[in-house]
């Protein structure tokens, strides 16, 4: 499979991704799977201009399934905006072995799991389904920081929505 990493990040392409993640995963293309972005040429141009030297492909989530069936080059780093998009990708048949969760920030109804990971009730349900589908789930904002095993947190009951603290970003 040519996909070398999959990341959920509400900002998609930004400083942490360009400076830290792209060299860490040694990708030669970014693949953004996002329905809204795929239909907005101005936003596509904005994201492409933000990626520095790494070429960017933008596709709908359904179209991005094909990236996971490619073999060999290019080494593609796939970015998704939300856990809902990741779940949609997996439901559509993409064989995603592992996903890194970082930069899912506070919004209405979200509760704090980590400083960079705020989850709604629907997010946690999505995580449970991804866990059952066999996706290894890791929370990590930047490569130099420790990873948090999300599958384990689910198994140990540390990701119960009602027990997570409310809070703002």
């Amino acid at each position: 499979m040519s996909v070398v990493a999959t990341r959920v990040d509400g900002r998609l392409v930004h400083g942490q991704v360009v400076v830290a993640w792209v060299p860490a995963v040694r990708c030669d293309r970014l693949g953004i799977a996002d329905d809204a972005l795929a239909g907005d040429s101005w936003e596509k141009d904005l994201v492409e201009s933000a990626s520095e030297d790494t070429p960017v492909d933008v596709a709908s989530v359904a179209e991005a399934v094909s990236w996971y069936r490619e073999e060999g080059l290019p080494r593609r780093f796939v970015l998704l905006r939300s856990l809902a998009s990741l779940l949609e990708l997996v439901r559509a048949g993409a064989p995603v072995p592992e996903a890194v969760l970082g930069g899912i920030h506070h919004r209405t109804g979200a509760r704090r799991f980590l400083a960079y990971l705020y989850l709604t009730r629907a997010d946690i349900e999505a995580l449970r389904e991804l866990d059952r589908a066999g996706v290894r789930l890791i929370a990590r904002d930047v490569p130099g920081n420790p990873a948090v095993d999300v599958n384990r947190a689910l198994a140990e009951g540390r990701l119960e929505y009602d027990q997570l603290p409310a809070g703002t970003s």
Binding site: H14, G15, L46, V47, S49, S51, E52
Partner: peptide
Amino acid sequence: DLGFGSCCQSARR
């Protein structure tokens, strides 16, 4: 600061 960073992207958007 960073032309590729989220501050600049937000400012442009």
